[in-house]
Design a protein around this nucleic acid. Structure first.
Length: 564
RNA sequence: CGGGGCGUAGCGCAGCCUGGUAGCGCACACGGUUCGGGACCGUGGAGUCGGAGGUUCAAAUCCUCUCGCCCCGACCA
């Protein structure tokens, strides 16, 4: 491919609207252009990257026996109404009517449509198991598109679905996908984790997310270095570091106008972890007091799982239910449901005295209050691993893939059933598995760049090699460069030939910015000694090789799996 | 949806406070000199100043409304 024939609009400066590194670099290096918020055009370089990622995904999906199909992107409403998601999902779904007034929507994901197909075509246990996937456009009217191609309103997704006769079959399909996903992300050159995740609105029994560490990420995971525990903070459990019991006796302390843990803590010069934070919530069946340690944040979703939906009590409600104003609440002597974080089970604490302007020291569970014990807090850096007690790390990550055990959530409402060996009708057991190729690309950039530009992992770079003749008006240079280009292309490498009549500096800068892994530089001086220069983008190491050895050297470099 | 910021040439920006009819750098075109890490000189093309309304003799500049984009938060199937 000749540089002069391709549209690769590199820019000397970073466009100002970009914030994330991948966004800045992909704009500057001419990979993508923005049409509107969350809508991107992929230019030739960008599209090549996506295509290579797609090829890897196809390879690995096919390897586990999955079959590629293609489904419509526009769907009739009824099918989404049958599963209830037409109503559960709100503004995030693009909806429209066709000319006859029929309600339609644009697909955000394809569980419904895949299940519809399965319902029609999979009739017998003899048809199962099946795995179907597609690489298709999804549309979501995101509340806030951001970070370039990381979070867009229209995006490509590789989504696959498994159909099994029972949970055992689902386990197998899930495992196959897990392995395939590990292969895909590894082959794409990413650093990633597999984390336990929330099943969310997808429903189902188990779910994992594949997470690529990056400051541009929108999620956080907890990681234990010692054992294999890795989980999204949305579901992560952790143990609080236990406190030294200071053995306080009951003592009421005057804390005028000090309400928050922070205020009282600094006033009494006692660390926040020695406090009990008391929060009053209104549940569907009445009020409940929720207790956390002073250094903890309430994890809404964990609480929701225990008590269902809830809302914070108003000031008046706090007063009328507890007889004291917020800020001085303590868990003692209230005839009310109390749910407490397990970290409060042991130890002696400070808490509100149920009396304005007073707190009380020396409160212990069992003696002063009793409660239902649960993990209610948001896991944080330094908490201990629930499995092995090692200190946990927290890392910011990009979600690049997810896998869900759906069970019968879609097959039942859409009547996707099969007849088992006994002629019994049973719902198909499903799994769903997604990967965002654009996120892989963005994560790859986030994890591989330097001050000069992108450093693509070899496997997903838009080209394998960039041939750079330094002086295009030198006949010998161009003859050699042309021949090398031909030979490299002939060796099934993707080659970019910078045939522009530009100064060497410009070509070097653009080459570094674009980030093709290997550069082959042909300069007049070296050529006199029958030498050319081979440079590795990542290390910037350049060495001269004999002209006749250059092709084999490059082929070796490109195929060397040790350096992705 | 709440909070903040920004819309002036393809990109990056100045001009706005204090109204007087649009400018700089890069990019682009042409000529010349250059040529191993974003060269230099000269000439030139390119802008409904996001849009609408208003104030005024006069609006990029002041006022009102509106649209768009970015960031933080909420949301995220």
């Amino acid at each position: 491919m000749f540089f002069s024939n391709m549209i690769m609009p590199t820019m000397r400066e970073f466009p100002s609207e970009a914030e994330a590194i991948s966004h800045k670099l992909m704009l500057r290096a001419g990979y993508v252009r923005q049409l509107a918020s969350g809508l991107y055009a992929y230019l030739p370089l960008g599209w090549r990257v996506i295509c290579r990622i797609n090829a890897i995904m196809r390879d690995e999906m096919n390897a586990i026996g999955a079959q590629e199909i293609s489904l419509p992107v526009m769907h009739p409403a009824e099918i989404w109404q049958k599963t209830g998601r037409w109503y559960d999902i709100k503004e995030e779904m693009f909806r429209l009517k066709d000319r006859t007034g029929r309600d339609m929507c644009l697909g955000m994901t394809h569980e419904e449509i895949m299940t519809w197909l399965a319902a029609r075509e999979l009739k017998s246990y003899r048809n199962l198991p099946q795995m179907w996937y597609q690489i298709q456009t999804k549309l979501r009217d995101e509340a806030r598109p951001k970070s370039g191609i990381l979070r867009t309103r229209e995006f490509l997704m590789k989504d696959s679905y498994s159909f099994d006769i029972d949970d055992e079959g689902l386990d197998k399909s899930y495992k196959l996908h897990t392995n395939a996903y590990h292969n895909i992300f590894r082959r794409c050159g990413l650093v990633f984790y597999q984390a336990e995740s929330d099943t969310g609105m997808m429903g189902g029994a188990a779910a994992h997310e594949f997470m690529a560490p990056s400051p541009a990420g929108e999620d956080e995971i907890v990681i234990c270095d010692k054992c294999d525990y890795t989980a999204n903070v949305e579901v992560a459990c952790s143990l609080a570091v236990s406190l030294k019991d200071l053995g306080w006796q009951h003592e009421e302390v005057h804390t005028p106008n000090k309400r928050t843990v922070k205020e009282v803590s600094s006033f009494l010069k006692i660390g926040p972890s020695y406090f009990i934070k008391s929060l009053l919530f209104i549940l569907s069946d009445g009020p409940a007091l929720v207790l956390l340690r002073g250094d903890q944040e309430l994890h809404d979703k964990k609480l929701m799982k225990i008590i269902g939906s809830f809302r914070p009590a108003s000031k008046d409600e706090v007063q009328s239910i507890l007889g004291v104003e917020a800020g001085f609440i303590g868990p003692m002597s209230h005839a009310i449901r109390i749910i407490a974080d397990v970290s409060l089970k042991e130890g002696t604490f400070v808490t509100g005295a149920n009396k304005v302007d007073y707190h009380i020291k020396g409160i212990t569970s069992g003696k002063d209050f009793s409660a239902e014990w649960h993990d209610l807090h948001v896991a944080k850096e330094g908490d201990m691993c629930p499995k092995c007690q090692n200190a946990l790390k927290i890392d910011r990550v990009i979600e690049i893939g997810n896998i869900f055990k759906l069970g019968v959530k879609y097959s039942v409402p859409l009547n996707a059933v099969y007849l088992d060996a006994n002629g019994q009708e049973r719902p198909i057991i499903m799994g769903s598995y997604g990967i965002g190729p654009a996120r892989i690309a963005a994560a790859a950039v986030e994890q591989n760049y330097d001050k000069d530009g992108i450093i693509w992992p070899k496997s997903i770079a838009p080209f394998d090699v960039e041939v750079i003749p330094l002086n295009v008006s030198d006949a010998r240079t161009m003859e050699v460069a042309g021949q090398l280009y031909k030979n490299l292309t002939g060796s099934s490498l993707e080659v970019l030939f910078d045939d522009r009549d530009e100064r060497p500096g410009v070509k070097f800068k653009d080459a570094d910015l674009i980030g093709i892994p290997v550069h082959l530089i042909i300069g007049e001086k070296s050529l006199k000694d029958n030498m050319v220069e081979i440079k590795v983008r990542r290390t910037k190491e350049a060495h001269k090789v004999k002209l006749e050895d250059s092709i084999s050297t490059i082929i070796k470099l490109v195929h060397d799996k040790s350096v992705l």
